[in-house]
């Protein structure tokens, strides 16, 4: 859970290097999931940390930098998606391999997942609408509460729940396979 650690952050304002080391990998993974493009996600993360650098120099910085960084990254990804047909063309035609992930070592659980299931889940995730993908990533992968997701995406909590239900139903079908 990344939201709610405000008291810890407020005790001592972290340096830029500390924030980068703590959140760069997470933001790379988050933007990679939202954009499905490694180059685009790298550019977005660079922009996010540039904004972090500027925000730290302004008066009244946010007390929860983790939530601030995530919100800025999500909004930057949404801006990229709205950038026009050229971005959509790149997103649909560029390579999608080598997304930076949290772990490279195959765990027993990972080894237990069949290649077919793995392929189905990724295909289902890419088949989600932008809104469903945003909601699922923030709610289930980032662990944000429903109200925070709604506030960040400009939705109502009820709309967030509906998008989340549709996304999970789609992904569950992929996870279970034809036997569902």
């Amino acid at each position: 859970m990344l939201i709610g650690d405000a008291p810890t952050i407020a005790a001592r304002s972290p340096t830029y290097e500390e924030l980068f080391e703590r959140h760069a990998g997470r933001l790379h993974r988050l933007c990679g999931l939202l954009l499905a493009d490694r180059d685009e996600s790298r550019e977005v993360v660079q922009d996010v940390f540039l904004k972090l650098h500027q925000a730290r120099r302004q008066p009244g910085p946010p007390c929860d930098w983790a939530a601030w960084l995530t919100r800025v990254a999500v909004n930057a990804c949404r801006d990229r998606r709205r950038a026009g047909w050229w971005w959509r063309f790149r997103r649909q035609s560029d390579r999608v391999e080598d997304v930076t992930l949290t772990s490279k070592e195959p765990t027993p659980e990972e080894a237990a997942i069949s290649k077919e299931t793995w392929h189905r889940i990724w295909a289902a995730f890419r088949g989600l609408s932008d809104r469903q993908r945003d909601v699922f990533v923030l709610r289930h992968l980032e662990g944000w509460p429903t109200d925070a997701v709604a506030s960040t995406l400009g939705l109502t909590p009820g709309s967030v729940k509906r998008h989340l239900f549709r996304a999970i139903r789609h992904l569950r079908t992929a996870a279970v396979g034809d036997s569902a």
């Binding site: 765990t107 793995w118 889940i121 990724w122 995730f125 992968l141």
Partner: peptide, 10 residues
């Protein structure tokens, strides 16, 4: 699903 998305390559 969470494990595949967070810990495996697409």
């Amino acid at each position: 699903v969470r494990h595949v998305l967070l810990a495996t390559d697409p």
